[in-house]
Design a protein around this nucleic acid. Sequence first.
DNA 1: TGTGATACTATCGAAATTGATACTATTGAG
DNA 2: CTCAATAGTATCAATTTCGATAGTATCACA
Lengths: 117, 117
Amino acid sequence: MSEALSDPVQTRVADDDACPAPRVIGMIGGKWKLLILQILIFQGTKRFGELRKSIDGITQTMLTNQLRALEADGLVTRKVYAEVPPKVEYSASADGLALAPVFTSMHDWWVNRSAGS
Amino acid sequence: MSEALSDPVQTRVADDDACPAPRVIGMIGGKWKLLILQILIFQGTKRFGELRKSIDGITQTMLTNQLRALEADGLVTRKVYAEVPPKVEYSASADGLALAPVFTSMHDWWVNRSAGS
DNA sequence: TGTGATACTATCGAAATTGATACTATTGAG
DNA sequence: CTCAATAGTATCAATTTCGATAGTATCACA
């Protein structure tokens, strides 16, 4: 937590009461967002079609949706090539890459927890 | 639901190297779950009514729902006292408490990221 | 002229999640 | 007998999210 007094509205709005967790969940909590981020963070840049093939069961509609949302939140960048047929590449942004520790802590928690499956 | 050959996630649940992030999100990704966990992890045991007062805007229905889900996933324990009027206490389980680093990493990411709010 | 490849976009309905409201159970106090 | 206090249940409507399907655009190539 930060000092509330010396700071104007900016940090208090962003920081709210204590924890931004709900907002973080809003950003990465979609049905497919984590799978997409996982791939882009740990495997690097991918084309639209590659993502679609990598993520089993996702539809084109949803892939576009989730990518747009991730892009709007600044977690993913989109690069369009002026080619035919079209070529669009997606990558994790700096903020997106910085999510790696969140993934790691989730993974560690999962592995070490006592409950089964 | 009939994949004959490729059996996706379901059957190889226990796999260590499969990333569990979606399942973790399933456990903590409800609209109110994080707020509840936050309180129970960082403030300790609370009664039902205390939680309800702490979480602005939540209804009784949803508080019960989310607590039941958290309990089913082993993140929260429930202790009923045989009193009238009823008294029920909720606490974070060991597994629940172990989620603290996930919260911390989310918080750090939020604070350090470059995008504003 | 017609086809194929890639990455969309637009609808519409199904399904899941959430919210609002009303109801139950218990029992000591008055 | 009636009421207040606590922690629920039970329904059903509203909202949000998701999925299936079909259509668009471009242009090299045969």
